[in-house]
Design a protein around this nucleic acid. Structure first.
Lengths: 164, 164
DNA sequence: GTCGCTGCAAAGTCTTTGCAGAGAG
DNA sequence: CTCTCTGCAAAGACTTTGCAGCGAC
């Protein structure tokens, strides 16, 4: 996938992964160990597939990807759901929902960004805006809050769907 | 699991409704007439209940509210779903999700609002920041996105809890 | 009176759960 | 070995749909 680069001072399409898979995997293993859970091939495959996808995946699309890439594993959809819940509880992935369609997941640790969500086609476009980031910190400061994290979604209709 | 609506300690910086109900109702009636649809008591009650709620409502909670307030009507949940879809298609309401399961609806004509959520005590403070609003519109414009709504949450620890 | 609307219940979707065998530690 | 995990299928939760009578216009 090509890097679109910069549009104004909005950065889109990050392809540089800020977190290496190996480290992510280690984090996952630690998490499992701490909670007395087991490291299984299915869990690894789910993490890896999430990592290698640049899209926000539904449980179903993730399951399909895994079946394509690891046809011998016969990973069940139930395991995908169970693992995604586990990862979400541990803040390793975040989920977004919107419109008529279901929930979509992404690795939270990859990089920080905000989302544009098209209510028609469900496409999620990522962006980062330095001004907004900065302003958020300022607001938190003004209100005396210790800001730890944030999540922002903008809902609307994407260029493509407007033309239909 | 953000039960945003169910917490009693919400601080809000604006309580004035920017759109009068009467006007909203007229808009709704026009919409119906244009599309050869009928204005029914159920549809009015749904609009009114949405208007009078300051929360994002799920179809179920909206249905419950209506049953409480208009017990004689026996409005069916199916009608609530159907009316919400109608209103959403017509851009009179928008649906969002704060991450918990289920879709939540609110009147789109009301104001935008952002949230600061304290991870310790669960207090939710709503705020609006003109700079962020403006910046969001600019970003949407640059990306060719028809922005309809947004939702932003900042997570952290509030002043009170920091002092403990 | 016509034709859309409504409530009900049944049918779809999407997600979770129970279970018995498989497998990690 | 022990105890968790997994796939499967069944159950649950949430939405949509079909239908026959009701009601807005």
């Amino acid at each position: 996938m090509e890097n679109i680069g910069k549009m104004g001072n909005i950065t889109t399409n990050f392809n540089d992964k800020t977190i290496k898979y190996k480290q992510l995997l280690e984090d996952f293993k630690s998490l499992l160990k701490i909670n007395n859970l087991k490291f299984t091939i299915q869990r690894e495959v789910i993490l890896e597939t999430l990592y290698n996808s640049d899209e926000h995946l539904t449980p179903e699309s993730l399951h399909n990807l895994i079946q394509e890439k690891f046809p011998d594993l016969k990973t069940g959809i139930a395991t995908v759901y169970r693992t995604l819940s586990l990862l979400e509880e541990s803040d390793m992935v975040t989920s977004l929902s919107f419109g008529a369609q279901g929930k979509k997941y992404e690795l939270g640790a990859k990089h920080h960004h905000d989302h544009f969500i098209c209510k028609v086609c469900g496409t999620i476009t990522e962006f980062v805006d330095a001004q907004i980031e900065e302003r958020q910190h300022k607001i938190a400061e003004e209100l005396g809050f210790d800001m730890q994290d944030h999540s922002m979604q903008i809902y609307g209709i994407c260029k493509n769907c407007q033309n239909k």
